[in-house]
């Protein structure tokens, strides 16, 4: 063991001990507490409140409500971070294209058959997670990442070229992804635009009406709780995340020979 490594280990141990000491002195209060923090109580009680329409977020699920309504801006920019990472990766891979001359190899026939079966089953599960995002745990990102399993499996089991031969090319996925992102953005400023047209005060990321902004997305449609903008956000996010992952995995599975033709 070298001297530098010993230094690193010792400093890390000191770091851990000081953290643990501070926590034991009550740096975080009693863990876990009996009552949640007061802000959390407000979130919990105003997540769904049909009797006070100006102080609610119209969904049963508090996490989705926080993610897309109370703190919608964070999630919007989080999507932007994810988008930025993908764009940066595309920028690294700019000019790389996949030739479809070689045949895809893939795995054994047993795996292929079962994967073909699951390609029907899994998107159904994912779509239900996305549609019920405001009622049960789940939402756009969760559904998108569940649906990604299909893409991973197809790419791994059948081979990348098979996917491309089936017609799922890079521009199409990019199109899908951009549509999802633009949908998120338009949902965010939707009420502001509507407010400009009919002359009502409205806020960015507004979902339900507020005391001084009397305009809202529909909360119910035919006795079904749709949760206003939550459903729209979840759907667009689902599309955007799935397409984003598909794009990334496609870039990853391009073979080295193909890449090296363009990059160094």
């Amino acid at each position: 063991m070298k001297k530098s490594e010993v230094c690193v280990i010792v400093s890390i141990i000191i770091f851990i001990f000081s953290l643990a000491y501070i926590t034991s002195l009550g740096g975080l209060g009693y863990l876990p507490p009996v009552d949640v923090r007061k802000l959390a109580q407000i979130y919990l009680s105003s997540t769904y409140n049909p009797f006070e329409p100006t102080n609610t977020s119209s969904g049963y699920e508090s996490v989705t409500a926080i993610v897309w309504d109370f703190r919608g801006l964070d999630t919007f920019f989080e999507t932007a971070v994810f988008y930025g990472a993908i764009i940066a990766s595309i920028a690294v891979y700019r000019g790389v294209s996949i030739s479809t001359k070689k045949k895809p190899i893939g795995m054994s026939p047993i795996a292929k058959t079962i994967t073909r079966l699951s390609t029907v089953l899994i998107p159904t599960v994912a779509a239900s997670i996305a549609f019920h995002g405001h009622l049960t745990p789940g939402g756009g990102f969760q559904a998108g990442s569940v649906a990604t399993v299909v893409i991973v499996l197809i790419v791994m089991v059948f081979g990348l070229r098979k996917v491309i031969l089936k017609g799922l090319t890079k521009p199409k996925i990019l199109l899908l992804r951009s549509l999802g992102l633009v949908g998120i953005g338009l949902t965010a400023i939707g009420l502001v635009l509507a407010g400009l047209v009919i002359g009502v005060n409205a806020y960015i990321f507004q979902n339900q009406a507020k005391p001084i902004a009397h305009i809202s997305y529909p909360m119910w449609i035919d006795d079904i709780l749709v949760g206003g903008s939550l459903l729209l956000f979840n759907l667009f996010e689902f599309v955007a995340v799935m397409a984003g992952f598909a794009l990334v995995l496609m870039l990853f599975s391009i073979e080295e020979e193909e890449v090296r033709k363009v990059i160094k």
């Binding site: 789940g138 969760q142 990604t148 991973v152």
Partner: peptide, 22 residues
């Protein structure tokens, strides 16, 4: 935290190992 589980399992059991294996 079922929300976290739903997003964490795909990301950390599924996608991150895939990326690292790539």
């Amino acid at each position: 935290a079922p929300d976290i589980v739903l997003v964490y399992i795909p990301v950390s059991v599924g996608i991150t190992p895939a990326i690292l294996l790539f």
